[in-house]
Nucleic acid binder design. Structure first.
Lengths: 221, 221
DNA sequence: ACCTGAACACCGTTCAAGT
DNA sequence: ACCTGAACACCGTTCAAGT
């Protein structure tokens, strides 16, 4: 019925990836789920890599605030990073998708990157510094989205998630305390990962504090 | 002749991964290279995941300075992060290996983590903060090792590497300048990625500046 | 333009069997 | 203890062919 379209394929792929992990997103599995032959997908995508690029693009698409970022550059960068993390957090597999893909191939990611570059330049950083800062912030955002506080897949219940952190805690607590004293001692906070919101806020603060400190040091405004 | 040993397998795996990428590291390919049947590897490793864990462990093994880190905690953390980046940079596939693996399974990584946790606590951070800071620094180090300045695989020549950055530059320059103005303008520094040493130094500075700023803000020493 | 059928060259892994 | 042979259930992708 519903004709096979690029968008439908990508959305189905994200659904599988969110529920069962990116490894479960397979051309054949995807085709089966869409009621179609595996080779049908090759009409819409050159290969699996391009499919993954499509997934990444769909994740970020429409995120960049069009008019925005008119205030101080620090606020702009902070909002950009926090927003990117927030968008990625909506899909459990988002961070994995972005890790699996060359960012340069993803238009929506390039747009975020371009905005970050512009803000860094407004911060008075040199060209080289602006490049490094934008890369640092964006890979930092992806790492934050991949970190603890990641949404458990819709398929999995709260219980399932709680069980996983319990197993992680047990694993940490069963380590030899003489060789990993601090890890064993902190098994609880390490496995629970504190409140997810707090983690994100702290992470963004950390990223931005580094930028601002370097900005002050090198005399940027 | 040389009997098949865990270590020999891991080293061969790293050799393939460095030369042709982690995707080329395959049970069957590995067995072939070692002059053995694929199933022979299953005597030494439960499955491919454990093989990858072995690779990660071998990469970091013996890195943590035993006596060290007696000075101020900032110096200790900086040295730890810089050292980790340096060690990972010795193998082109190192960052990919660490991305593919649950760090909790890698003893050598846990040791680095434990050291980082101890240093963070000495810095006066709370338990939760210490957890987040250590995770932030270690994932930051891996991200740095994965970033530009990565060693080109031994198999590839200098020319080959130069050709790749040339292609990347062309790709960036051919983007529509009205939608990605800053990226197109900065195509050269973005593709070249500045001197690799400078990139690492800047990256570590950035990571540490964030930590120190937060430390000062919350009143840690 | 859009999809199918058949085939190719791969994977990881299990299980019984050899030495 | 350490390795092999045969088999299973998967992969991504190509290419000719259908409508």
């Amino acid at each position: 019925m519903g004709k096979l379209t690029r968008e439908a394929v990508v959305e189905q792929a994200l659904e599988i990836g969110d529920a069962e992990g990116l490894a479960a997103v397979t051309i054949r599995r995807l085709a089966q789920e869409l009621g179609v032959t595996p080779m049908a997908l090759y009409w819409h995508f050159k290969n699996k890599e391009q499919l993954t690029v499509g997934m990444a693009d769909h994740l970020i698409e429409g995120f960049v605030i069009e008019g925005g970022y008119a205030g101080p550059w620090q606020e702009g960068l902070r909002e950009l990073v926090a927003g990117l993390v927030r968008v990625l957090r909506r899909h459990p597999c988002a961070a994995d998708v972005l890790d699996a893909v060359d960012h340069i191939e993803v238009p929506a990611f390039l747009q975020v990157w371009d905005t970050a570059l512009g803000l860094a330049k407004r911060g008075g950083f040199s060209r080289d510094e602006s490049c490094m800062i934008s890369q640092y912030l964006l890979s930092g955002a992806v790492a934050l989205a991949a970190g603890p506080g990641r949404h458990s897949p819709p398929g999995f219940s709260e219980q399932e998630a709680a069980e996983r952190t319990r197993l992680k805690r047990l694993r940490l607590q069963s380590l030899p305390p003489d060789v990993y004293p601090h890890i064993v001692e902190m098994a609880v906070p390490l496995s629970e990962g504190s409140a997810p919101d707090l983690y994100d806020t702290f992470g963004v603060d950390l990223l931005m504090a580094g930028i601002e400190a370097l900005s002050a040091r090198s005399g940027g405004h």
